[in-house]
Design a protein around this nucleic acid. Structure first.
Lengths: 250, 250
DNA sequence: ACCTGAACACCGTTCAAGT
DNA sequence: ACCTGAACACCGTTCAAGT
């Protein structure tokens, strides 16, 4: 099912770590995993993930579609490889001493990677993803940020997951906001909505609809980095929660 | 772009709220949005979202593929309608008085909805999603949980978003864990990995790999509700963070 | 051993034609 | 007004054949 290699690992993991032995006899291989993944990423950067078809990738490296199947087992595997290759983080990164600052730095770093290649968020993350090289590197950095915190291993990994999920969720939202027009709903639309979203039926939400606090109208002038503000609000909740948890313990 | 109707709203929103006026003259309509969405959801429940093709849906209601296009503008719109229709919450739900308990109840309720129809998480959520009827209902309930908390509107909506993103991220992870085999990586695989994930290169993560705290092996016997425990850990971080924020303010 | 060409069994969507 | 049939321009993947 997980289409494992003789190493006992999923093929994508083996390839990404460079464990997939390449036969050396016979005609020299014209293609490579690297070239294929690179070409696929360029297409995704330029025209989005949906433009990444086996035929487009093949054409871009100058081979026929079928030749790709010598290197990747199918499109799923290619996507897995792209997903990890897209998660690039700065080579040298020194985290602040204070763990709160370190976690913030880490979160912002992850956010930058996601923002740089937002299509990677469209590829489903599974248990295989977290074994890929860049994922491992990022996780190691996250753990480094918490190295002096009195938490056990499970708590630390859970924290990393919570934060990175928070980051990805926000970047995703951010992204879909600026894919849609600047104004998701016209003033007229809000009025029409107000007829069904009444204070009687939705006592707590209806006021927000009127005040405009529920619908982010996506006008950047109006809200220069509102998304950032809300992102940070959530991040602070998590960090404060962690802080309090540690304090109560000691 | 947002393919708006004369109401100034995206078509999917208008349809879901029942605003899309249906012509009454002429032959009675053989199909309806409801029947189409219902059929599509049944297919997704049984065979996954990828089995939801226009042809499959049409066949399931006993019409030709093209007839669907009289009711929905395309597959995207159908997916939007499915996404909201899948988000069902109990009709009568009284939230506990304590806001912390209320938020927990709310989170668990949302989780139940996601778990019941996990395919809905595969449909990208955009700004349109949050205007759909069930989304509005869920948001209203979330706000109700915080009604006595001294937070402003933006903070409350941000909190709702953070929590619901946390919920969806966990259900997604949970789901992909039990789609893969019970054991994502064999003991042999871990050993192979240990050769590249060395303490030198990944000082903080390597120990966790060895101890088995990083790789969830997905064996339920081993970890009866480990996922739940980690889910709750994150939720508690957020709630504790909120608690502390409020305390510091007053 | 590697790459290719033809073919298969699909997709979503269009468009003009039927009733 | 509604539904249909044929067609278009794609997909990912297979398989046997070439070199």
């Amino acid at each position: 099912m997980t289409d494992a290699t003789e190493t006992g690992l999923p093929r994508a993991v083996a390839i990404a770590w460079g464990m997939q032995e390449v036969p050396q006899r016979g005609p020299s291989r014209a293609l490579s995993h690297e070239r294929i993944v690179e070409a696929a990423m360029r297409i995704a950067d330029e025209d989005g993930l949906s433009a990444v078809t086996m035929q487009a990738v093949a054409a871009s490296v100058g081979f026929t579609t079928m030749s790709l199947y010598r290197y990747v087992s199918g499109k799923d595997e290619l996507l897995r490889l792209m997903q990890d290759a897209a998660l690039t983080v700065p080579e040298k990164l020194t985290l602040p001493d204070d763990w709160r600052e370190a976690l913030r730095t880490w979160a912002v770093m992850v956010r930058a990677a996601y923002r740089a290649r937002p299509w990677m968020l469209q590829i489903p993350r599974g248990p295989v993803s977290i074994l890929m090289p860049n994922s491992i590197r990022v996780a190691d950095l996250g753990l480094a940020a918490m190295k002096d915190l009195p938490l056990d291993d499970t708590e630390k990994t859970a924290t990393i997951l919570v934060i990175s999920q928070h980051v990805s969720a926000w970047v995703e939202l951010e992204q879909s906001l600026d894919e849609q027009g600047p104004l998701a709903v016209s003033a007229e639309g809000v009025q029409t909505l107000a007829e069904v979203i009444t204070p009687e039926r939705f006592p707590h939400l209806a006021p927000l609809l009127e005040s405009g606090h529920y619908i982010a109208d996506g006008d950047p002038a109006d809200d220069p980095d509102g998304m950032d503000a809300e992102f940070e609000f959530g991040l602070e909740l998590i960090i404060t929660g962690l802080e309090e948890k540690v304090r109560r313990r000691s």
